[in-house]
Design a protein around this nucleic acid. Structure first.
Lengths: 187, 187
DNA sequence: CCACTAAAGCAAAATATTTGCTTTAGTGGT
DNA sequence: ACCACTAAAGCAAATATTTTGCTTTAGTGG
């Protein structure tokens, strides 16, 4: 039932994909976006451009693919000893990352791409992390929080500010929204 | 103090811009995005491609420019007789538009583009419309609503769903969030 | 070890983008 | 009304990119 994302996971395909992804990440750090071109990436990855075009279609889709990979959480949220602590710490860190220039670029790459699959994964990752926090909370006999609520009350407004208002939410702004989660009757 | 967006508003520049914008809108309706290319647009607009490249830089920026123009409200929100009615009606219509395929495409074009100026305009338009509703409310002796609240509580979560969850919010979903605005103590 | 297949390489062709220079349309001064 | 001036458009040659048909290679299963 496991449909592998690459038909031959252990082999050449995977190596090429890794090389191309790494080339993208390297070049993103080294130069302007304007010079981040498919031939340049192919060259750095020691691959022919046609390989990239055939596998990813175009630059936008490749960048979205790389962005998603980087957006994927590599660690579970830190354990601070309580659900509230875990959630607060994770939210602060998450929005610090998303407000940064590279974070914004990743969001652009993911949202600017036609296929919705990528944006959907972002949502998935977010929920996974919240679930992970909830599971730890359950193990501690705490009462879990509705992930949907976290997203609606904290995540969505902050992403709105980053995406539409070009605002960089301060830690205080994150905490202010966080409070609404736990003190639902307060304004 | 008015810095004109085009240096010679009444003249050739404006005509060319109009022709190019219209060409984009026409072609967007007629064909796939893949065939929506700068040379094709130039051809339809009876303009040389280099004009487009020099004025807009590339396809993405041109599309973002056109999207912003279309996102700009052409009418003030409908007058239903009360602030709540105006706001509810406007929100429902707004999210119907944004959930549609063309609406999503416009959001993609705007958000996928590096310069943040465009996304910022979206936020501006939104607030303008809310302000317009508030001004009418004031004229009716009603108490206005904080635009920031509307955005945080209703707009941001719905945009999140459209952008990240590929969800098409129902009218009921819009209304459910709308209620939170006016009944702040309820869940 | 051999046959099979999916994906990569290669190179030529097709497209798109950039660029230097020329031409045109609008602006302001007389 | 004319003339000089300028910003933007047109044009065409030079580059760069993307696409494509075919060949080669690496991994898979028998």
């Amino acid at each position: 039932m496991t449909m592998p994302s690459t038909p031959r996971p252990g082999g050449r395909s995977a190596r090429i994909q890794a090389a191309v992804h790494q080339a993208v990440r390297e070049l993103q750090k080294e130069q302007e976006r304007a010079e981040l071109t498919v031939p340049a990436i192919a060259n750095r990855a020691d691959v022919t451009p046609s390989t990239i075009y055939r596998r990813w279609g175009d630059l936008a889709q490749l960048l979205a693919d790389v962005a998603i990979e980087q957006l994927q959480p590599d660690q579970p949220p830190a354990d601070t000893g309580s659900l509230q602590g875990d959630l607060r710490a994770w939210l602060i860190e998450y929005f610090e990352e998303m407000s940064s220039a590279p974070g914004r670029a990743m969001l652009r790459d993911v949202l600017g791409t036609p296929g919705h699959a990528n944006a959907g994964k972002c949502d998935g990752f977010l929920r996974q992390q919240i679930e992970a926090i909830n599971e730890r909370a359950l193990a501690r006999q705490e009462v879990p929080i509705d992930p949907e609520k976290v997203i609606q009350i904290v995540v969505a407004p902050l992403l709105y500010r980053i995406l539409f208002a070009n605002d960089t939410p301060t830690t205080q702004a994150v905490e202010a929204l966080f409070e609404r989660l736990t003190m639902p009757t307060k304004t």
